[in-house]
């Protein structure tokens, strides 16, 4: 294949677009980690839930024209599920004085991911579904772009912007930031950290669900569709630095660009390998990730 500047530009734009969508997933993972200091291994299943709710709302209730209402509906529903899951499964480890919470969190969220994936297989069967097309193809400059990808890209950009406003221009956002810097400090200042945890978990899984809902017509809807999203999400937070919000966004864009340009210059068949190569290079140069900081353990 001859690589022309136009082709290069097209793949760069495609890489940026998919990078922004990866960012939603990575933001959810890193946001929960930064506040609760635990990894939610079931993030992919919340992505999957988001895609299923989107499909169900569009197919059975709203119709294809109101796909954007479906996105909001998916986010709200998964937010509520997140509140309940955090309260029932996660919160007890923070209220019982338990040591090694991260290990408990790992076991519980892996079990949750298996449960949700199998539950959806039972309820919906293993078939692949699609909510139909969001938008007809659009043209960016000379680049023809799938309308579904473009809609997902714009939706993801909007959500990232709203998340940025929440974190930086509201007092609740300040409380999230303060909690991520010092959990004991906020508690002894009078802040209810359990409520912050619950809200952070619900917002984090809601972002994953938004990614699932936005990408439902692109990557389709089936019980294990969150697996790839989870792997990408974890790649990104290691590239960007654990717990770093800017790291999640820039890491996602770096991954999207690497995959897209690697597909042009080397081989599209190795697309998923490029992310791991980038991850290894970053770890060799800066083991804490692009924006990660060394943690003082004592």
């Amino acid at each position: 294949m001859t690589i022309t500047p136009e082709l290069l530009l097209n793949f760069t734009i495609a890489g940026l677009m998919i990078g922004v969508l990866y960012a939603l997933m990575a933001l959810g993972i890193t946001f929960i980690y930064s506040i609760m200091k635990m990894i939610n291994w079931a993030m992919g299943e919340f992505y999957m839930l988001g895609s299923y709710v989107q499909w169900a709302l569009v197919v059975f209730l709203l119709g294809a024209d109101y796909w954007f209402v479906g996105i909001i509906g998916s986010m709200i529903l998964v937010f509520v599920v997140g509140l309940i899951v955090q309260r029932v499964l996660i919160s007890p480890m923070f209220t019982s004085g338990m040591e090694r919470r991260d290990e408990y969190g790992t076991v519980v969220t892996i079990a949750l991911s298996l449960f949700l994936r199998n539950l959806m297989t039972v309820l919906s069967g293993p078939d692949t579904r699609t909510p139909g097309r969001f938008l007809p193809p659009v043209t960016l400059g000379t680049l023809p772009v799938s309308g579904d990808r473009f809609a997902a890209f714009v939706g993801a950009l909007l959500l990232i912007f709203l998340f940025y406003l929440l974190l930086n221009y509201t007092w609740v956002g300040m409380a999230f930031k303060a909690s991520s810097q010092n959990r004991v400090g906020v508690q002894t200042a009078g802040i209810n950290i359990l409520r912050i945890d619950q809200a952070a978990f619900a917002i984090g899984v809601m972002l994953a669900a938004a990614a699932g809902a936005l990408l439902a017509p692109v990557f389709l809807v089936y019980p294990s569709n969150g697996a790839i999203a989870t792997v990408k999400g974890f790649e990104i937070i290691i590239i960007g630095g654990m717990g770093s919000i800017p790291g999640a966004v820039l890491g996602a864009i770096a991954l999207g660009l690497t995959e897209s340009l690697g597909s042009v210059f080397i081989s599209s068949g190795l697309r998923d390998v490029f992310g791991f190569v980038l991850l290894i290079i970053i770890l060799l140069i800066k083991p804490t990730g692009l924006f990660g900081e060394r943690e003082r353990l004592s």
Binding site: W171, A175, G190, I191, N192, R195
Partner: peptide
């Protein structure tokens, strides 16, 4: 201000 306002 954080202690004062970080209350939903």
């Amino acid at each position: 201000l954080i202690a004062r306002f970080a209350d939903f």
